[in-house]
Simulated assay, not measured.
Amino acid sequence: MGKNKGSRLTITLECECKNNKANSVNKRKKGIARYTTSKNKRNTPHRLEIKKFCNCCNCHENFKEIK
């Protein structure tokens, strides 16, 4: 029998660069970079923000949680 995950949620992180027109020269490909991860909603009730590598920009950018 598997354990219940409890208060863990699966979330999607999306890059901020999708709306940034100044970075359009350095873009490697079109589209939106997304990651999926999980968080504990009791410990982190606010939206998560993590700095990760963006394949579109070819650099490290802030990824914010989306619905």
Rank of each mutant, 00 (worst) to 15 (best):
E16N: 09
K41W: 03
A33W: 06
T12A: 00
C17H: 06
N55W: 07
T36I: 05
E16M: 06
S24G: 04
N40I: 07
G31N: 11
N43T: 06
N62S: 11
N55M: 09
K51G: 11
H60P: 12
F63E: 01
E61C: 14
F53Y: 15
N4G: 03
K27Q: 04
C59L: 10
H60Y: 15
I50N: 02
T12N: 01
E14N: 00
K29R: 13
T37M: 00
N19V: 03
P45Q: 15
R42V: 11
K18I: 02
C17E: 05
F63N: 02
M1P: 03
R8K: 12
I66H: 10
F53G: 04
V25F: 02
C17T: 08
L48G: 05
N40M: 04
T36S: 06
N23P: 00
F53W: 13
I32E: 05
S38I: 07
K18D: 04
R8H: 09
N58C: 05
K29P: 00
V25Q: 01
N19M: 04
K3W: 08
Y35W: 14
E14K: 01
T12Q: 04
E61H: 12
R8F: 10
H60F: 15
T36C: 04
K67R: 09
N62Y: 12
C15A: 12
C15F: 09
F53M: 03
N26R: 15
S24R: 12
K51T: 12
R34T: 13
R42L: 12
K51L: 04
G6D: 03
K18M: 03
I11R: 02
N62L: 13
G6R: 01
K21G: 03
N26T: 15
E61M: 11
R28I: 13
G6V: 00
N62M: 13
N62H: 10
S24E: 10
L9M: 05
E65W: 05
N23L: 13
E61L: 11
T37K: 00
A22C: 14
G2F: 13
R34M: 06
I32D: 06
M1Q: 00
I32R: 07
N43E: 12
H60L: 13
T44L: 00
N19Y: 03
K21F: 06
K64Q: 15
N43F: 07
I50Q: 14
N26G: 13
T36N: 04
K18T: 05
G6S: 02
L13H: 00
A22G: 14
R8S: 09
G2I: 11
R28S: 12
N62T: 09
P45H: 15
I66C: 05
R47S: 10
E14Q: 08
H46C: 04
G2L: 14
R42E: 12
K21C: 01
N62V: 10
R42K: 13
C54F: 02
C57K: 09
S7T: 06
K52D: 11
V25P: 00
I66W: 03
